[in-house]
Simulated assay, not measured.
Amino acid sequence: MNFKKGLINLKMSLYHQPFAAIKAGTKKIEVRLADEKRSRLQVGDTIEFTDLDTSETICVKVLGLEKFATFKQLFAKYSGTIIGSPEDESIADLDRENQTIYSRAREMQYGALAIRIQIIK
């Protein structure tokens, strides 16, 4: 990624509900696989999220990055509205839902990444 500061460093797609939660300001951490694409992110970079339902975009600044060996470890630290989930959702439920997106094999290969974000106004 050879982007100049101030421009979009990474583009990612989101389902409508998490996109709306970022837009509303309640979702402050994006949860992703710590694969090659996301491992290049740095604090201060910008991400453009696209809503898969509406094609609307929103830009955020990366405020922090925290890597975990597993999503369960990430969910033990971060859960609820800060990651765009219901407050009462269990770690087991979060992990089970996440398995529909990322396989356990990929999780074991790359780990999990908590990306702390802030909307760029």
Rank of each mutant, 00 (worst) to 15 (best):
N2I: 11
N2P: 03
F3R: 15
F3P: 02
K4S: 14
K5F: 12
I8L: 09
N9V: 03
K11I: 14
S13H: 11
Y15W: 13
Q17H: 11
Q17F: 08
P18V: 06
P18Y: 04
F19K: 02
F19L: 04
A20I: 09
A21C: 10
K23W: 04
A24H: 07
G25Y: 06
G25D: 08
T26D: 09
K28W: 01
V31T: 10
R32I: 03
L33H: 03
L33W: 01
A34R: 03
E36Q: 12
R38Q: 11
R38T: 07
R38D: 07
S39R: 12
R40F: 13
L41A: 07
Q42G: 11
V43C: 12
V43Y: 08
V43L: 10
G44Y: 08
G44N: 11
G44R: 07
D45K: 05
E48M: 13
D51W: 04
L52H: 05
T54E: 11
S55Y: 10
S55W: 09
E56G: 09
C59G: 09
C59V: 15
K61F: 04
K61W: 03
V62G: 04
V62C: 06
L63T: 09
G64Q: 10
L65C: 07
L65M: 08
K67C: 06
K67A: 11
K67T: 12
T70D: 03
F71W: 01
F71P: 00
K72I: 08
Q73K: 12
L74A: 02
K77H: 07
K77M: 05
Y78K: 01
Y78N: 03
S79E: 00
G84I: 00
P86F: 05
E89I: 10
S90C: 05
L94K: 00
R96Q: 11
R96E: 10
E97H: 13
N98R: 09
N98T: 05
Q99K: 13
T100V: 08
Y102A: 05
S103F: 05
R106S: 14
E107D: 12
M108Q: 15
Y110F: 15
G111S: 10
G111M: 05
G111P: 04
A112S: 10
A112M: 03
A112D: 02
A114W: 00
I115W: 01
I115H: 02
R116A: 12
R116N: 10
I119S: 07
I120W: 06
I120C: 13
K121F: 08
K121C: 10
K121I: 07
